[in-house]
């Protein structure tokens, strides 16, 4: 797939329209993971709109989004940045051998109290 195809696919899958963004930065202002990301919500929106998906696919930021939807809720333009991040992450982890999370890694972190909910959610987010 060429660059434009990847962009179109990422946008289509996200169900959002990054062109609605007025570049106010409220998503990044509200993001609780901001300091853990090197590409921030507003940059995701802008770069996806421009088709710069490659750097985002390689970025650790796609695994730091909490899908807390605060950016979606507070965006004055209805852009829904979290859905764009999710779409980019799926683009990354759906590639062969690109699963981010392995059962071994879970075993290393898990303790007696760890709720199942954490494990199933993490696999849904970090593995295909």
């Amino acid at each position: 797939m060429n660059r434009d195809n990847v962009r179109d696919e990422v946008i289509r899958r996200s169900g959002t329209d990054p062109r609605k963004c007025m570049k106010c930065g409220k998503c990044s202002a509200t993001c609780p993971s901001y300091d853990e990301m090197e590409g921030h919500p507003h940059e995701f929106v802008y770069m996806v709109e421009n088709g710069d998906i490659e750097p985002l696919l390689a970025s650790e930021s796609i695994y730091r989004c909490l899908t807390c939807m605060a950016c979606v809720e507070r965006c004055p333009r209805g852009v829904e940045p979290a859905k764009i991040v999710e779409s980019v992450r799926l683009e990354a982890i759906r590639k062969k051998g690109a699963n981010r999370l392995t059962p071994e890694a879970v075993a290393a972190v898990a303790d007696e109290e760890l709720p199942q909910q954490a494990v199933v959610t993490a696999f849904r987010k970090y593995a295909k």
Partner: peptide, 19 residues
């Protein structure tokens, strides 16, 4: 109404703890 870190716990326990 802010996020506790949720599932990121399995990716970055520090981030979950910080949140």
């Amino acid at each position: 109404n802010e996020c506790c870190g949720g599932y990121v716990l399995l990716e970055s326990p520090e981030l979950a703890k910080k949140r």
